[in-house]
Write a protein that binds this DNA or RNA. Sequence first.
DNA 1: TAAAAATACTCCATAGGTATTTTAT
DNA 2: ATAAAATACCTATGGAGTATTTTTA
Lengths: 293, 293
Amino acid sequence: MDLRQLLFFSTIAETSNLRRAAERLHISQPPLTVAIRKLEEELGVQLFERGAKGVRLTPAGKAALPAARSALVSADKVRLWSREGDRGERGALRIGFVGSSIFDLLPRLIPSFRARYPLVELSLEEATTHEMVPRLLAGTLDAALVRAPLLEHAAVDLAIIDHDELIAALPVSNPLADAERIDLSALAGETFVSLGRTSILRMTALKACHDAGFTPHIAQEVPQLSTVLCLVQSGLGVALVPSRVRTNIPAGVKLVHLDVAPSIETAVALSNLAAAPAAINFRSLAIELSADD
Amino acid sequence: MDLRQLLFFSTIAETSNLRRAAERLHISQPPLTVAIRKLEEELGVQLFERGAKGVRLTPAGKAALPAARSALVSADKVRLWSREGDRGERGALRIGFVGSSIFDLLPRLIPSFRARYPLVELSLEEATTHEMVPRLLAGTLDAALVRAPLLEHAAVDLAIIDHDELIAALPVSNPLADAERIDLSALAGETFVSLGRTSILRMTALKACHDAGFTPHIAQEVPQLSTVLCLVQSGLGVALVPSRVRTNIPAGVKLVHLDVAPSIETAVALSNLAAAPAAINFRSLAIELSADD
DNA sequence: TAAAAATACTCCATAGGTATTTTAT
DNA sequence: ATAAAATACCTATGGAGTATTTTTA
């Protein structure tokens, strides 16, 4: 049995006439006769009753016809879906993201992507930049929203899609909380709340402090940026956070600009080799949206 | 594209290795290479990444694989369904029935048939014996429950599946309603309620009356046996009905046996030529069930 | 260098064409 | 008598085999 025979079967069923079916199929009538009889022999069942005024489906033919049509439809889907998959318009896309992108970037990016590529099934996972790089290379992630500067990695392509700066998050109880702007060195004596050691955000903040002439005293390490803000709110310390969190700060936390604002950037990272088309589409869309701002 | 290529595609996807896939397919490796590349060329898309340690699905391949599998499953269904159709285990079956079979025969037959042939879609229509014969021959009915004696028709096969007798249905107000049994001639002076002129039940009843020496006065003609019983209940007249209605008589109607009981039979009728397998199964089941009584 | 895939070439099965016969109404 | 399907026969495409080469980790 092959798809050609099923197409013949379905066409004959529609025309009830071998000659007309042959016309529609752009072949002559004899090979149709041969092909359909061969199919019947293979199935061990008669599909048509032959008569002088054409052919009629037998009960066996009536029962088999929907399956034959469905096979033809599926074959068409092979054609369509393979092309869609090739263009990154269909398939699964696993995206990793750093926690801080949840405040601004992710909520803008994901709905746009879903709207433009509705057949791509997204799965999202939070992780740190350092965790995501090997996963991109291993192929367990297709794209990642990471913090740049990423230590340069030859096999990972970066496209910066968001520029931001660090800003001081202070509890309202802190005397500096009402300042218009402060110098980072003013925080030298404070206790700090920070993300874990592998976080690029933390590394950037630490470097800024060193540039300002002090080493911050980190009293608490937590994995999520939102937890950092909660601890600041509780008065446990101060923190340096991306200014984009401003849309989601809890009451009791004040954000104060720094005289010299350390910059921090978010990028889309893709594996240099073997980037999925859908991942490339994701990056293109992210770049496009970042240009809109 | 043909099913063979889709099977190759699916098998390679499962083994990630052309040689192993070739083994499973009982062919050698080179034709596999050729066939899958030909499929890729036809689709205009690469389905696998080739490497020294085997092959891996591309995003296009991942997207197309479910459709390919579905085509193969449908092809299997063509095999299965055509055989089921041929054995009368799948398909549509249009059954006609005379109204009186609704009281006893149909409620026993239909559930048994559905239980034994769950893939056959039944459609039921009430009609008279005389209406159903041409429809059997025209093929708009596959089987019919008819009243025998049917005027002999060469192209219709009859199998009697129920023997019954006529019985008098009287309103309780009728003085004869309390008799153990009566002679049909006792009803000579009554007004009768009856089915329409084409009904075999009516013809049988009329003949019985003539044999008993009188021509009944038919005051009302209605199409349904249940309506006949309602009119008897209302006191509009008496009727001769099959004794099987006893399970469904309304209050106010008494059934009284006749000294000489006219017999009336129900049969399964099939077109002699072109009887559908499912219709033959239906008849076999009906005969089987009638033997059980 | 070793395993896997690709290429080269041969053979044969079979799809499709034309001409013609058989069948059924 | 006529329209439709079946048969006969021919050609050529292409699928599968064996032997061998190329590729890549």
